[in-house]
Simulated scan of single mutants.
Amino acid sequence: MKAIWNGEVLAQSNDTVVVEGNHYFPPASLNRQFFSDSSTTTNCPWKGTASYYNIEVNGKVNKDAAWVYATPKSAASNITGHIAFWKGVDVQP
């Protein structure tokens, strides 16, 4: 799987975990130069607290376009540290 935005590959892996239709990419699969921390968090009743990343590619910023459960609840332990995408990021085989 690949996550692509603004013409760049943000992450690529043959080992994503699919939860609720979202592909969660292992941390080592990210091209970290495109990511910066965001102060945004959200809470899921069964997964826990998600933290967000802003994505910047070729001078364009996609705010809060990726998220991670760094310390999820036990029901979601299989996505610990994995990153998922939305807001126009194309996730494809």
Rank of each mutant, 00 (worst) to 15 (best):
N62Y: 08
L10I: 03
P26N: 11
V68Y: 05
V89I: 01
A84Y: 01
A3Q: 08
N54E: 11
Q12N: 09
D37C: 12
T71I: 05
T40P: 10
W67K: 03
Q12P: 03
A66T: 12
W67D: 12
A28P: 00
Q12S: 09
V17Q: 01
Y53V: 03
G81N: 05
S36L: 09
K47L: 02
A28H: 12
A3P: 08
W5H: 04
K87F: 05
A66R: 05
A75Y: 12
L30T: 14
T40M: 00
A28N: 15
T80V: 08
N78C: 01
R32Y: 15
S51I: 14
G88C: 04
F34Q: 13
P45L: 01
T41V: 08
R32K: 15
D37T: 14
Y69C: 00
F85P: 10
L30S: 13
K63M: 10
W46Y: 09
I55M: 05
N14F: 04
F34R: 13
Q33L: 15
W86G: 11
E56T: 07
N58G: 07
A70C: 09
V91T: 04
N43Y: 15
E20I: 01
Q92W: 00
K63D: 12
V68W: 04
P27V: 15
W86Q: 09
A76L: 00
K87H: 08
A66E: 14
V9C: 04
D15R: 06
N43C: 15
K60N: 14
T41S: 12
S38A: 05
S29I: 03
H82A: 05
V68T: 07
A70N: 09
N62K: 05
V91D: 00
F34A: 15
N54W: 07
S77Q: 04
S38Y: 13
K60R: 14
A65I: 04
G7T: 06
R32L: 12
E20A: 15
E20C: 09
K73V: 07
S74P: 02
T71Q: 06
S51T: 11
W86Y: 14
G21Q: 10
D37R: 13
N6A: 03
V18P: 06
S29H: 05
V9N: 01
Y52Q: 00
L30M: 12
V91K: 05
